[in-house]
Simulated scan of single mutants.
Amino acid sequence: MNYIQHKVIILTGASSGIGEATALYLAKHGATVVLAARNEEKLKALTDRIKNDGGQAYYKVTDVTVNEEVQALVNFTLDSVGRVDTLINCAGYMLFSMWDNAHVEEWEKMIDLNIKGTLYGIAAVLPHMKKQGQGQIINVGSIAGHAIGEGHGVYSATKYAMRAITESLRKEMSVKHNIQASLVSPGVIATNWQSTVTDQDVKSVLENLNEVAIDVEYVAETIGFVVNKPANVLINDVIVSPTSQE
């Protein structure tokens, strides 16, 4: 049965990578997607692509590190479609570095986007989902939130934080308010993620990862699997990774 159809889904980080692939997958299966990211050109192009393929899509330029902008995103969705069924917190930074090099500004960027951006999204949708009597919050974590590798320190810390946030949501909101809280943790994905790494010392540690990377569409399908559940079924945690990734 298709439980994706007719759902109204807010998706952050939608302009590229996992977010873009997930938007296409969900729209193809009948969801109305509200796309959020900072790059308006990419958002508009993706929205037009979905509409040209017969899907339903809206977009709003949003910096999820700014609480007021996330609140405005949810208000825009309510004004445009009337409800929010699912929030997918997909926006994130993956900036690996060695402790010796103290990339403090990069640490702050990951904390602001990966943790605060997730929290702002949750805070914005919870009142509406509680009023509806149901909803879904899906946080896109990482395999780095389950195992720590060299150069992963702060990035892993932010993804472990997302695990804690999701589990706490589950204890309070899933049990008491029928709001499903799920975590999807990808392994190494074939995107352009290595281009964002500035620490030269860590690049040699990571250089072989792309050799085992899987296509982003597999992560999108996994997120779709979580979305495609009735209100009384909860998928708690899913790890999707290359078979040969350690």
Results as ranks from 00 to 15, higher is better:
residue 225 F to C: 07
residue 153 G to H: 11
residue 76 F to Y: 14
residue 81 V to I: 14
residue 87 L to W: 09
residue 116 K to N: 15
residue 111 I to V: 15
residue 184 V to F: 01
residue 106 E to R: 12
residue 63 D to F: 02
residue 16 S to Y: 13
residue 156 S to F: 01
residue 222 T to E: 05
residue 173 M to F: 13
residue 52 N to P: 03
residue 143 I to V: 14
residue 158 T to P: 03
residue 26 L to S: 05
residue 188 V to Y: 07
residue 47 T to P: 06
residue 42 K to E: 02
residue 97 S to V: 06
residue 77 T to F: 07
residue 150 E to I: 12
residue 222 T to I: 10
residue 108 E to D: 14
residue 54 G to P: 10
residue 91 A to V: 01
residue 188 V to L: 08
residue 170 R to H: 01
residue 148 I to E: 10
residue 224 G to P: 05
residue 104 V to H: 08
residue 50 I to S: 10
residue 159 K to T: 04
residue 207 E to G: 00
residue 75 N to P: 02
residue 225 F to A: 13
residue 228 N to A: 06
residue 182 S to G: 06
residue 143 I to E: 11
residue 197 V to D: 00
residue 199 D to G: 08
residue 219 V to A: 09
residue 64 V to Q: 09
residue 13 G to L: 01
residue 167 E to P: 00
residue 88 I to C: 06
residue 245 Q to M: 12
residue 76 F to H: 12
residue 126 L to A: 11
residue 73 L to N: 04
residue 93 Y to R: 10
residue 45 A to R: 15
residue 209 L to M: 14
residue 85 D to L: 08
residue 77 T to E: 07
residue 124 A to H: 02
residue 140 V to W: 09
residue 169 L to Q: 01
residue 141 G to F: 11
residue 202 V to Q: 04
residue 142 S to I: 04
residue 31 A to W: 01
residue 57 A to P: 04
residue 221 E to I: 04
residue 205 V to L: 13
residue 189 I to S: 06
residue 205 V to C: 07
residue 193 W to P: 01
residue 1 M to G: 15
residue 101 N to T: 15
residue 22 T to C: 07
residue 189 I to A: 04
residue 110 M to R: 02
